[in-house]
Structure formats: C-alpha cells, structure tokens
C-alpha cells in the first residue's frame, strides 16, 4: 500500500489518533483498571500503599506485572510515587488530580445510571 493517496490517509489516521488523545481520558486496559481500583481501595482506607506492598498483595498479577502496570499508570498520570523520607528505597503510591477526576466521573456515571 504505497500510493501517495494511501500514505496521506495513513498520515491522517496517525494524526487523528494523536488529536483524539488531546480530548480523551487516557485509556486504561482491564489490568490497569483492576490495579487502579485495588490501589483506590487502600486510598479510601486512608492508606498510602507502597509499591512493594502493592506488588505482593495483588492476587491477580505477578509482582513484575504489577510493577509494569504501575509504571504505565504513572506515565498516564493516574498515580504519583513519593519516596519515603526515612527510607529512600520505599516509594508510596499516591493519587493525582486525574485519578480523583476519574473516580469522581465513575461515581457520577453510577449515580446517573441508577437515577439518583
């Protein structure tokens, strides 16, 4: 598929994908969503889970998979990692304005769907 027109169309598709990213929430895959929900439960209990704790308490994913998805969540802006002042090796996972907005929207959608 090397004609000039088809190349222009491919460019348009790539450009359109980048433009969509400007207007949408970052998309989460099911495992990232599961992990974020898992961490959110800890936040709701007023705890700041550490990366290490999260890696070893998740029953659905291996520690390395958790770490990989945490990296992606961080890159997408849903979590922030804060280094423990007492021990530089420990990093705590805290929420961001984006994650707060995300859960707020989910809550709103739930309320709307049950008509409350």
């Amino acid at each position: 598929m090397n004609t000039s027109t088809s190349i222009s169309y491919i460019k348009f598709l790539n450009l359109a994908n980048a433009m969509r990213e400007l207007t949408e929430f970052p998309v989460l895959n099911p495992m990232e969503e599961y992990l974020l929900n898992h961490i959110a439960l800890a936040w709701h209990a007023n705890k700041n889970p550490s990366v290490s704790q999260t890696m070893h308490t998740s029953s659905e994913m291996s520690p390395s998979t958790v770490h990989r998805h945490l990296t992606t969540l961080r890159r997408k802006g849903f979590v922030r990692l804060n280094v423990d002042e007492r021990d530089n090796r420990v990093k705590f996972i805290s929420h961001t304005p984006l994650s707060q907005q995300y859960f707020s929207l989910l809550g709103q959608c739930l309320s709307d769907s049950v008509g409350t």
Binding site: I7, I10, K11, N14, L15, N17, A18, M19, E21, L22
Partner: peptide, 13 residues
C-alpha cells in the same frame, strides 16, 4: 517516521 506513526498528543502540542 514520515507516516507519523506513533505520534502522541504531547508531540502534537
């Protein structure tokens, strides 16, 4: 690439 493959929103900005 010339086809803009992998173009991200940040790069667009």
């Amino acid at each position: 690439a010339s086809t803009l493959k992998g173009l991200k929103a940040k790069q667009l900005l």
